[in-house]
């Protein structure tokens, strides 16, 4: 099916070539060069190896990717593969230092950034939920929302660049983001007490220093006492009492990896580090109800978010 589409495109190009001047033809040839390169790359089989994690998980990813990409990839044992997939941060760092083409899978953004800051050009699917997506999820759940608080640590402060404050866009401010930087754990309680009174909800980014098993009780009880819902950062938190989150499980990661590998086959390069494009939504119905928020179908919410990202 994909080849048929490409053939149709090719015919259209030929028709246009006839109508264009030579100069334009040259430009067009240059413009189409990546397509030929992609076609050349398409013709060969990509070798992929998976590292890190337990054997079962490695096998699961290998099977899934082979199933999704068919004969376009060949899973090979570690060493000598075109692309190495690293399922944990340790392998991601090690493989990156070796200088091979590495894709980290569910690696914390801070760890990816640290490796890239060392000069390694590895890429990775970030662990956790995309901040912008979480924010839009919060808006879908609570349309009247206007002030959202975000806690950041010195390590995660750069994540704020992924959240464009609408107030900075020059458009009328319908939603204001309130960032507060905090040293993890010890200063968390004062920071919550300072931030929560001036916002309507807390957007919890995937930051283990702030949102982990040791702090969940503090964060969720403090925010609920002040009637400020929390969104994110992950499924465990939602089960514990956060309102909702988007998340990318292994199946979403596998789909996103397949998409990236296709892009490599077609365009000859991998995307820059980022969050998986595939995700689901999970809600805590009890908490939604307590805040008097309408119950929504998680699949509808995910579809709505995907539509928003497509545009």
């Amino acid at each position: 099916m994909r080849f048929m589409l490409r053939d149709v495109a090719h015919v259209r190009v030929q028709r246009k070539v006839m109508l264009l001047s030579l100069r334009r033809c040259l430009l067009l040839v240059l413009a189409c060069l990546p397509l030929w390169v992609g076609a050349a790359a398409d013709a060969r089989v990509l070798t992929v190896s998976v590292h890190g994690g337990d054997a079962a998980r490695v096998a699961w990813f290998s099977d899934k990717l082979a199933g999704m990409l068919g004969e376009r990839i060949r899973m090979v044992p570690p060493g000598g593969a075109d692309v190495q997939l690293a399922l944990d941060a340790q392998h991601f760092r090690r493989r990156c230092r070796e200088g091979t083409r590495v894709v980290g899978v569910a690696i914390a953004p801070q760890q990816v950034r640290a490796v890239r800051d060392d000069g390694h050009r590895c890429t990775a699917l970030f662990r956790g939920a995309e901040p912008e997506r979480q924010l839009r999820l919060l808006q879908l759940l609570q349309p009247g929302l206007q002030r959202v608080g975000v806690l950041l640590t010195p390590d995660s402060d750069w994540l704020r660049t992924y959240l464009l404050d609408p107030a900075d866009s020059g458009e009328p401010a319908s939603l204001a983001l309130d960032f507060l930087e905090v040293a993890p754990r010890k200063e968390l309680a004062p920071a919550l007490n300072r931030l929560l009174p001036r916002v309507d909800a807390l957007l919890a980014l995937d930051e283990t220093g702030l949102y982990g098993p040791n702090t969940a009780r503090l964060v969720l009880l403090t925010s609920y006492r002040q009637r400020r819902p929390v969104v994110g950062p992950n499924r465990s938190f939602v089960q514990a009492g956060s309102l909702a989150t988007t998340y990318s499980g292994d199946i979403h990661l596998a789909r996103s990896l397949a998409q990236w590998l296709r892009r490599l086959l077609e365009q000859g390069r991998l995307p820059e580090p980022g969050w998986p494009a595939h995700f689901s939504v999970t809600l805590n119905e009890d908490v939604l109800k307590a805040y008097d928020l309408p119950l929504r179908d998680p699949q509808d919410l995910a579809a709505e978010l995907r539509d928003g990202e497509a545009h």
Binding site: A216, R217, Y224, G241
Partner: peptide
Amino acid sequence: VQGAMDGGEIPRVLTPARLDQPRS
């Protein structure tokens, strides 16, 4: 069982018993 299934280590904090009645 639920916790083990989800692989989460965080216990439920805001349980129905601890949440207030919705305003409506």
